[in-house]
């Protein structure tokens, strides 16, 4: 079976500084895959590379078997990959409803249409309402996204990410800055909404990682030192030495 995401020998340098070196990563379809690693290991850069935000210096990235390295983010998105951002990245002056609806429009085939009334597109309306319901923000639908609470914005961020119906979802630290109760809520939400899809998640909270992930990759200094099931990662001496040591046991 083709992997959902296949990263082959990718390198990324900014000037003389090599951030990512010989990165190899394979995420199977339907798998929940967590990427962990110390600060500055290149987790966000890996996300940016896979989603097309930045281009690799060398190497190749495939999405569902198709080469996507070198494509623009929207081209990769149209091929079925959607990502969220570590720093909330929503449409601040638009309402919650409009935020989600914008994320639904391309996927429902309306593209750049300027001859259709956006309010009278039944499937758009239904799907937007469904997503709002899923992320528990229906009661806030007419509030500008910039006025939401932090936790609500994080939920909206996830809502926008999943709204297009992408088969591969990448979440960059979705629970960062959340309280314990909010985190639990968010994890339940992620688990439910990514059912049947491929999930790649960067996360610092180890309880989230080990509770959610089928497989874990450990990234240290731009290189993946180990990939495996949570048990394998827990038992891996290299991982213990490099990163987890005191945190996992």
């Amino acid at each position: 079976m083709t992997a959902a995401i296949q990263v082959n020998a990718v390198e990324k340098s900014f000037g003389n500084v090599q951030i990512i070196r010989d990165l190899n990563l394979s995420v199977a379809k339907g798998e929940r895959h967590a990427i962990i690693g110390p600060n500055g290991a290149g987790k966000s850069t890996t996300f940016n590379l896979i989603s097309g935000h930045i281009k690799p210096t060398s190497g190749e990235i495939r999405l569902n078997g198709e080469v996507t390295s070198g494509l623009r983010p929207f081209e990769i998105n149209r091929r079925g990959l959607s990502r969220s951002f570590q720093v909330t990245n929503v449409f601040a002056r638009m309402t919650v409803w409009e935020n989600v609806r914008c994320a639904v429009l391309w996927a429902t085939g309306h593209r750049y249409a300027f001859w259709k009334n956006v309010d009278s597109l039944p499937e758009v309306k239904q799907r937007t309402a469904q997503i709002l319901d899923d992320i528990h923000l229906s009661h806030r639908r007419d509030v500008p996204a910039g006025l939401l609470t932090y936790a609500e914005q994080r939920e909206l961020e996830i809502g926008i990410t999943i709204a297009g119906g992408a088969s591969v979802i990448m979440l960059d630290e979705p629970t960062a800055g959340m309280s314990h109760a909010e985190t639990e809520r968010a994890v339940a939400l992620i688990r439910r909404l990514t059912e049947g899809r491929t999930l790649v998640i960067v996360e610092h909270d180890m309880s989230v990682v080990f509770g959610l992930a089928d497989r874990i990759s450990v990234l240290v200094y731009g290189h993946i030192i180990a990939s495996g099931t949570p048990e394998e990662i827990r038992g891996n001496p290299k991982v213990k030495e490099a990163y987890l040591g005191e945190e996992v046991d």
Partner: peptide, 14 residues
């Protein structure tokens, strides 16, 4: 409007 608010994010919704 979405491009006005956040052109970067627009690229990630297609």
């Amino acid at each position: 409007n979405a491009v006005r608010d956040n052109p970067e994010r627009v690229e990630f919704i297609g």
